[in-house]
Computed example of a mutant assay.
Amino acid sequence: MDLLKLEFSWLDAIDLLIVIVLVIQLYRLLKGSLAFNIFLGLCVIYAIYFLVKALHMTILTSILQNIINVGIIAIIVIFQPEIRKFLLVLGKKTPLSKDSFFTKLFLPDKFKSYKEEEAIINEITLAATHLAQKRTGALIVIANTYRVKFDTASSINIDANISAKLIESIFSKESPLHDGGLIIVGNKMLAAKVILPVSENPNLPTRIGLRHRSAVGITEHSDNLAIIVSEERGTISVAQDGVLSMDISPEELKVKLYEVMVDGIS
């Protein structure tokens, strides 16, 4: 009797590697969210389906088959935010993305001066430092596009140049604009008193308040950076890609701003 020979080519290795990378990225996106439990539930349904099909249980197989057929549409609806974030991660890794070696090597403006960006970074860092020292709460969102979505009904349009003193005055406790977030796009402060979506991530620290949860929420499904100044602790934190980094120094904040505002466009 001839033994079954398994052929494993380099194409199979690439195929397996791609699947592993996709699964790891999917796990990272869903880990810690309510969608992760839903994903596990769907995996259980599929496992039961293959089991009853192998056991030739006709009625259960038919029922589960119909559930699975409808489930494809349900998956798209339920996991819409996660799918968008997953595609955003993939877009960052493509050869034509702004962070890729190909883009940096062949696109023009390689020797552009970033004096304006450096001045803006210094102003934002200075404002956050002063607010933290005075224990004045603040939430600043650094958006990468003017098409950033927020509630325009409750927000106040500013369209002003970025200034540390102006940022501090906006979040002053006597200011009518201190509630909500401040949206910064490019070299402009776009709007203040912005209501932001609140994260539902159950793994966030229980001690954090609405300001920190809103910062995480605005970065979970968009390529933004959120800066939070804690009114209670007088500390600076940042949120990016749905991940909260707490109690960072002004120097660490400046490095993070450089990554977003300078390295991100170089």
Rank of each mutant, 00 (worst) to 15 (best):
A13V: 15
A127T: 06
R213F: 02
T219E: 04
F101C: 03
L210R: 14
D12N: 15
P197H: 05
I59Y: 12
V238R: 01
N37D: 07
E231T: 10
D263S: 12
V19H: 05
K31V: 13
G186A: 04
G180W: 03
I63F: 12
E117P: 00
E7D: 14
L88G: 15
V77N: 00
N201I: 08
L196Q: 01
Y27D: 09
A13S: 10
E116N: 11
S249G: 07
L225V: 13
L105M: 13
I76W: 09
N66S: 12
S155T: 08
G71W: 13
S9E: 09
I18L: 15
T61M: 06
N161S: 13
K149S: 12
I227A: 07
H56V: 13
K193M: 01
I120C: 00
S222M: 01
A239Y: 01
S100Q: 06
I24S: 11
E252C: 02
F106A: 04
I83R: 07
I72A: 08
D2F: 14
V21G: 03
L60D: 02
S113C: 03
L55N: 08
T136K: 04
I83K: 04
G41Q: 06
L3D: 09
P81T: 05
L64E: 06
E259T: 15
E259S: 14
P197V: 08
K5I: 13
L51W: 14
S154A: 05
V52Q: 04
D151K: 08
F39P: 01
E232F: 07
I184W: 00
I248L: 07
G234E: 12
S214Q: 15
L88P: 00
S249L: 14
N37K: 09
I162T: 09
L40K: 10
E232H: 09
L177I: 02
S222D: 15
D151F: 06
V216W: 04
I14N: 09
V141Q: 02
N144M: 03
L6N: 10
